[in-house]
Write a protein that binds this DNA or RNA. Structure first.
Lengths: 264, 264
DNA sequence: AGTATTCTTTTCATTGAATGAAAAGAATAC
DNA sequence: GTATTCTTTTCATTCAATGAAAAGAATACT
C-alpha cells in the first residue's frame, strides 16, 4: 500500500497543463493524444480534457489528422516577451545591416541562467550552414557570443560560471579556469571575443557585447568556416552594430515597456 | 440570492490561467499583480497563486520591481509552432535574399481565420518605416499580401470572405464585392497582387503567393512609399523568392514535422 | 513624522471543480 | 474477421482550487 503512493506526484492543474505543453519539442512538434499523454506522464482522459481546454484557448491546435501541435496564440504571446518585443525587434535592423555588410551568418544572443540562448540568426542562401538554432541554449564558455556575454558580466557571475564544470565540446574548448579567466580579461579590454572551433569543429566566430548603462544586454556574433580566417576585417562593422544597438536600446528604454502603463 | 450568482462565471482553472496570460498585450507587456488581476478579471489572491505557478513553469517572469512579464519559456515554445518552425525558419533565407536584392521592406504573411497575419518583416535602417508589426492581424481584402493569399484560396473561402463586410481603411480600399472579385481573378492570372494606399495611406506594395501542391501556404510582399512607383521592377525577384520557397517547403514537408515521430 | 491609500503576501474553512478508472466508440493493423 | 491501439464520454469520489479577510509592505499625500 505504501509503494503505490508514489504514482501521483501531487501536481496542480496548472503544472499538469504546462506539462502537456512541455511535451512538445523540436523533435516532436506534432503529437497524437496518446503520445501526448505518455510524454506528459499523465492519464489519457486527463490529457484529453486539459488539451481540450488549451485548444479552446488556442494554445494548442489540431491538424487534419487530429494530431496536436502548439497553437498560434502561443507564438503570438512569445512576441510580447521582453527578449522578443524589447530586444529582437530593436536589434533586427542592425543585424540586417551587419549581415548585408559582411554576408556571413549573424547571431544575436542573450544570457539565460547559466547559458546563452540564440534570439536570432540570419543566414542567407549563400552563407555557411551553422547548426545553431534560434532558441537553442549554448554554453557561455565555448562560443564567441557566450564569451562576449561573460566577459562583460559582473565578477560575481563570472566567478559562478568559472566554478561550474567547463564541458569540453571540442579539443579547442577552453576548460581550464585560469586560461578562460585570462582570456575574458583580454576580451573585456579589446572589446570583442574570438572563438575558433571551441564549440563546433570548423566554425570560427567573432562577437561583441551590447552594453547599456554598464550592463550587458546581449551579444552579436559573426560566424563562418575556420578555413577563411578573414573575420577580423569585420570587427569595425560588428562594433558599429553593437554600439548602434546599445544606443538605440538606451533611447527606447521604457518605451516598449512603459514603466507605468497607466490606469487599467 | 439569485442575483449574486452571476459573479462567478464558472471558469476552469486553465481558462483562468490563460486569462492571466492573456492580460498582457503590446501596450501592456509588464504588469503589477493588481493590474494583472484587474485585467484578467479575477480576485487578487487567485491571480497571486496562479501567477506563482506560471512563474514556476517559466511562463511568467518577474522583473526587479516585482512586475510580471511573459516568460522566456513562452517565447521558446512559440518557436515550436508550425508557423514559426515550419514556415518562418524555411522562409528566412529567401526573405533575406529578396530584401538584399531590393532594399525595401519585405513581409511574410499567412492566413489565420478570416485575417492575414504577419509572420516576419524585414526592415533595415535605410528602408521605409511601415507600421505593420509581426504578429499583427490585417485584412485579407485591403493589403498586397492579403489579396495574394485570397486570390489563390479555394472558391469557397473567397466567397466566405466576400460575403463579410469589407471595411474601408482608406478611400482606395476595395469595398465592393464585384470589383474585388474581378481583381482577385486578375491576380490569380497574373501571379501577383498590387496594392496602393488601400490599407495605409502612402504605402504601396506588391505581393505573391507561396503555393505548395495547389495550396497557398503564405504570401511574400514588398512595401515602399507610394511616391516611388518602381516596385514593378522587383516582380521577378519576388516570384523567384516565392517559387524558391514553395519548392523548398515541398522538399522539407514532413521533415520538420515527422508524420510519425516514432515510439515514446 | 503621521495618516491614508494602494499593493503584495499569507491564511484557512468551504465547496465545487478536477480527477482517472472504466467502458463505449473509432480507426487501424494483422 | 479478430486484435490492437487510439479517441471520446461518463460518473462517483475526493482533493485541490477558491477567494474573503487580515496582516504585512510599500508608496503617496498633508
Amino acid at each position: 500500500m505504501t509503494e503505490e503512493l508514489y504514482k501521483n506526484q501531487a501536481k496542480s492543474v496548472i503544472a499538469r497543463a504546462l506539462a502537456v505543453l512541455g511535451a512538445f519539442d523540436v523533435e516532436h512538434p506534432l503529437l497524437t493524444l496518446s503520445q501526448l499523454a505518455r510524454r506528459a506522464g499523465l492519464p489519457v482522459a486527463t490529457v484529453y480534457r486539459l488539451a481540450g481546454e488549451l485548444e479552446d484557448g488556442r494554445f494548442l491546435d489540431r491538424d487534419g489528422a487530429g494530431r496536436y501541435g502548439l497553437g498560434v496564440r502561443l507564438w503570438e504571446m512569445g512576441l510580447l516577451t521582453p527578449v522578443h518585443g524589447g530586444l529582437r525587434e530593436t536589434a533586427m535592423p542592425f543585424l540586417l545591416n551587419l549581415h548585408y555588410e559582411c554576408g556571413e551568418t549573424v547571431q544575436l544572443a542573450v544570457c539565460e541562467g547559466t547559458d546563452a540562448i540564440y534570439i536570432e540568426k540570419l543566414t542567407s542562401e549563400v552563407s555557411v550552414p551553422v547548426k545553431s538554432r534560434v532558441g537553442a541554449h549554448i554554453p557561455l564558455h565555448a562560443t564567441g557570443v557566450g564569451k562576449a556575454l561573460l566577459a562583460f558580466s559582473s565578477d560575481a557571475f563570472i566567478d559562478a560560471i568559472l566554478t561550474m564544470p567547463l564541458k569540453a565540446y571540442t579539443p579547442s574548448t577552453l576548460t581550464e579556469r585560469r586560461a578562460l579567466s585570462r582570456q575574458l580579461n583580454q576580451i573585456a579590454q579589446r572589446g570583442y571575443a574570438q572563438s575558433d572551433a571551441e564549440y563546433q569543429l570548423g566554425a570560427t566566430s567573432i562577437a561583441a557585447p551590447v552594453v547599456v548603462r554598464g550592463t550587458v544586454k546581449a551579444a552579436i556574433g559573426i560566424v563562418n568556416y575556420s578555413a577563411r580566417d578573414d573575420l577580423a576585417q569585420y570587427v569595425p562593422a560588428l562594433l558599429r552594430a553593437t554600439n548602434g544597438l546599445a544606443l538605440r536600446l538606451e533611447e527606447v528604454e521604457g518605451t516598449a515597456y512603459p514603466s507605468l502603463s497607466g490606469l487599467e
